[in-house]
Design a protein around this nucleic acid. Structure first.
Lengths: 132, 132
DNA sequence: CATTTTCCTACCTTGTCAATAGGTTGGAAA
DNA sequence: TTTCCAACCTATTGACAAGGTAGGAAAATG
């Protein structure tokens, strides 16, 4: 499988945030209830998104999270790159330049590279605004 | 990651077989040496391919494996479907009809379905003959 | 009958996914 | 200024799959 729950939950959380008034802060407890994701697990996912600058969080009463950008400027691919360890269809594409000893003579490498391209261009072409 | 070593090794083994004289039997010890895959691991992979009817094996002296079809009639996708537990980009696409409770209202499902389509059409369009 | 090779069953180790637990810090309202 | 809320931080856990091993049984051939 290419995309784990972490990435899929992340998309859902961003999607939920994008459906709110722009700039409105939403608490994680509300987000996790709405999306039926455990609060604790959602915490770990949201932390990644904040660290990447996609969300910003404010503590204290009436605190919560909000998007730092418009929904049409956030692609699904971007969210997945943040939350998934890898989006590549095969491991050997992860470290550039390619570390595999047989890379130079590998008959399948061009195929994997094309597939990787296909997948990533598709996922980066779709924005959160497209989904809502 | 979408494709594990099992699937990739399987492709390499079929590729190696396709480079031989048609109908020639090749022992697994030779195949595994040529492709630098441990004999024992190669056994488990080849067993899947035999069970699926893509290879046939003969025991005893001068035994070995050979393809049951021409290389231009074997697609990469077919090999991967046999060797990988799943080729889907997300888990919810694996059991049809979709078991996910939120499927009917899921805003991302159409996207995953299109991605799945994209990946599978690509992999099924490439044959072993194309790679050699 | 000895050798070669496939075939079969079981096991092991490692790492990641998915999720939980418990606490600390910061901010705002009462 | 106290209280409460909510984000933040640092482990830890259980389940499962990936990746690979081990040992032997069955069949074919010379």
């Amino acid at each position: 499988m290419l995309v784990s729950t972490r990435g899929r939950y992340a998309i859902r959380i961003v999607l939920e945030l994008s459906s709110r008034e722009k700039g409105e802060r939403v608490s994680l407890s509300e987000l996790s209830k709405k999306q039926e994701i455990s609060l604790k697990y959602a915490e770990t996912i949201v932390a990644l998104l904040v660290k990447a600058g996609l969300l910003d969080g404010q503590r204290g009463k009436r605190g919560g999270y909000r998007l730092t950008r418009d929904a049409n400027e956030i692609s699904v691919g971007e969210i997945l790159i943040i939350t998934e360890d890898s989006l590549s269809p095969v491991a050997c594409l992860d470290c550039k330049p390619n570390q595999c000893e047989r890379a130079s003579s590998c008959k399948t490498l061009p195929m994997w590279e094309k597939l990787d391209d296909l997948i990533k261009s598709y996922l980066f072409s779709i924005t959160i605004a497209d989904l809502n």
